[in-house]
Nucleic acid binder design. Structure first.
Lengths: 418, 418
DNA sequence: CACCATATGTTTATCGGACGAACAAATCCG
DNA sequence: CGGATTTGTTCGTCCGATAAACATATGGTG
């Protein structure tokens, strides 16, 4: 089958399937269910356990499991487990490094390529620094290709299956296509990134995903905290804040990315937190970015824009009043913006990522203060402001995760090939 | 079967069904699909047309249609249509006044009961005025009962099927139960409204729905504009603003109500539009309500709070500067709040309802001005600020619609009874 | 008007896939 | 060692969609 870009970003879209359900869809769905059960279970489940959890017959589950095993997506473990009477079950788990996805993160100052297996283990990754502002897409593709080729060769050589490739780009994506609609910092405008990559021989015949970096990072965080807590990602809802040059946002509602009509949702950086505030690059006034963006904070703290994060932290630790005020202002405006979002969406969790992740300890109290006074439902449901867990690796991981989410959503396409 | 409150509010929840798919579910799904095809089609479709649209066999569709006809949900029309060669098809349409839902709207100053059939036609409705602030739930139930009984008797006497009852309440709903969590104006706290109603003999054995009034109105508007444009409600996304004593909001994303984790989403009235603004009843400062709520506008316009809307409109038409300023301020703060919401959700349509609906002509320009400068994506996708189409009837219609949405989402439960 | 082309709706046989029950396998317990 | 218990597989059954043939009802054309 040819290159496919089924969805431009995000995990399985809520299947309020307007499409008809043929008998095969039934299989697809249950296959997806079983695979998800294996991948998201706290510990490797047996066939019997899956059967009980899902309400399917053991016979049915067995059949589906066989298909997934044949596809190298899952495998059996030794039946070491002993826990009472009865024949011990065979625990099932994701294969390690046998079914992998490649994630590519394009940033303004670096490009990272990483390989993640279906179980979420990062196999290998590699970063190359550079200046990609106002870059030529073809040059970027070249860099990606060169960076990825050895990794791909290596993985293929070991007999692993390549499930697909996911891309994270700092800009707006055209949903359902492999096209970058607009990436201000890269200075890209309607670049069909996927097509450019897919034309290369080694990149043929793959599944492709493309996503906005904030969205992709949010997906990765959703995954990380689900596995960390040993719980399925299903019911998680949170707002993800991605601090960078600007401030991006993204919403995970019940484990699903809320993409919006065009895939441009989450522009929390341009939420108005003070109509009398300073003008923003977007043309409006008082946008959050102007208070809590990287440049804004550094400027308010009296630092040079070329300074690095450690300088800011040093100033904070030294008790520098300007730095402290800068952070407090950022925190309270972040709090206002997040309170607005929470009131709108009824979500009780916020995850702070990007460069703000490191500042989380300094920001948290200030943010929470605003949340507790402004969120209407805060008296009934506690609110949490957490730091991301993935640091700079969120985007690469997430990009690969986009692919894996597609596999989970419908494993059928990945069955036939041995 | 006993009284059921399958979902507390809203239309079919996105079925990212974590639950297993048995063979029966397949039937359910396709039944739902066929029913939806009949109900949402611009003009009555034939079996063959449905078959082509959905990709199901004519045989399959025929079978499903038979079930739906037997359940009195749809019926055949005379094959009058002549449009080319071939055997003329039999057009299918919703039955009129043979399958109906009852909608109940509880407001602070009135209670309305209305009956709507599955095709969306309003059969009859009735309103009683009263003061239900700080009301006794039991008394309200009594009023509802007395108001509804003759309507129900009448409908049943004509041999129509009662599909269920939907309730609209100005407050927070406990999702998945029939309980009103908190309704400040009614002064209700954890009132199990559905149980109280269902205990009455005539109300036995029904399907029940319960929803927040803004949510319910939004559902009704979604439906109204879908049928008005002769298009299925599927892909519609908009933000609904419900002006009342306060300002409620609600989001319809791709035809689906976005309820949030607890069902408390849409609190756009407490979005901060000016951190230095006046204190709000919620404890924060600068909430939208304090600028664009009914009381705020009347106060700013120099009117008495007991005045009615016509007084405000008269002042506006007379060119009264205070009134004009009040409206302009309301519009720009509404614009700020809506821009925030739109940036977050990537929706390109806003529907203004409640008492603001009438003021729409005076507000629109001011709102749009803010939107066009503040919404990042406005240069690519045009934004629309529309008035609701249903006026005061939105809530009753929507309440009944909650039930009908459930029927559409899974008609199985309504098949057996002749 | 006969006849064919075209489209709709129904009938029939077939097949895919889940289910239930029975059975073999592997453990624990007494 | 034999019963109890749980797991995984095998086999017949049943439900529901599919495909193909057929009956039905038009329009068009010589």
């Amino acid at each position: 089958m040819p290159n496919r870009v089924d969805r431009a970003a995000g995990p399985a879209r809520p299947t309020t399937a307007r499409t008809a359900v043929r008998q095969a869809s039934l299989r697809e769905h249950n296959l997806s269910l079983v695979l998800r059960a294996v991948l998201e279970s706290p510990q490797p489940p047996t066939r019997a356990r899956i059967s009980a959890d899902l309400g399917l017959t053991r016979a049915t589950v067995s059949g589906l499991v066989d298909l997934l095993i044949e596809a190298q997506l899952i495998e059996e473990l030794a039946p070491v487990v002993v826990r009472g009477a009865g024949r011990p079950g065979v625990p099932l788990t994701a294969t390690t490094a046998r079914a992998v996805a490649i994630g590519v993160e394009v940033q303004v100052d670096q490009i990272t390529v990483g390989i993640t297996d279906i179980g979420g283990r990062s196999i290998v990754d590699q970063t190359v620094a550079g200046n990609f502002r106002h870059s030529d897409p073809a040059a970027v593709v070249e860099v990606v290709h060169n960076l990825a080729t050895p990794l791909l060769d290596n993985v293929r050589h070991k007999g692993a299956r390549l499930l697909g490739a996911g891309f994270s780009v700092p800009g707006l994506i055209r949903r359902g296509s492999g096209e970058v609609r607009f990436a201000p910092n890269l200075h890209w405008d309607s670049v069909d990134l996927i097509r450019m990559i897919a034309d290369r021989p080694q990149w043929n015949d793959l599944h492709y995903c493309l996503g906005n970096d904030a969205d992709v990072s949010a997906v990765a965080e959703s995954w990380a905290r689900a596995t960390a807590r040993g719980r399925p990602t299903t019911s998680e809802s949170f707002i993800y804040l991605s601090g960078g040059v600007g401030i991006g946002g993204s919403m995970i509602i019940q484990g699903q990315l809320l993409e919006g009509q065009h895939g441009w949702s989450g522009e929390i950086g341009h939420m108005c937190v003070d109509p009398a505030g300073p003008p923003c690059t977007c043309g409006a006034r008082g946008c959050l970015e102007q208070f809590a963006g990287r440049d804004a904070i550094f400027r308010a703290a009296g630092l040079d824009l070329t300074d690095e994060l450690p300088a800011l932290i040093a100033a904070l630790e030294a008790g520098d009043p300007a730095a402290r005020t800068a952070i407090d202002n950022a925190a309270s405006t972040l709090g206002i913006a997040l309170a607005n979002a929470i009131n709108l969406l009824d979500v009780d969790r916020v995850v702070i990522g990007g460069f703000l992740e490191v500042l989380h300890p300094y920001l948290r109290r200030g943010i929470e203060r605003e949340l507790f006074t402004r969120v209407v439902a805060s008296r009934w449901s506690p609110l949490l402001v957490e730091a991301g867990q993935l640091g700079g690796r969120a985007s690469v991981t997430g990009a690969a995760r986009l692919v894996i989410d597609q596999v989970i959503a419908d494993p059928t396409g990945w069955l036939s090939a041995s």
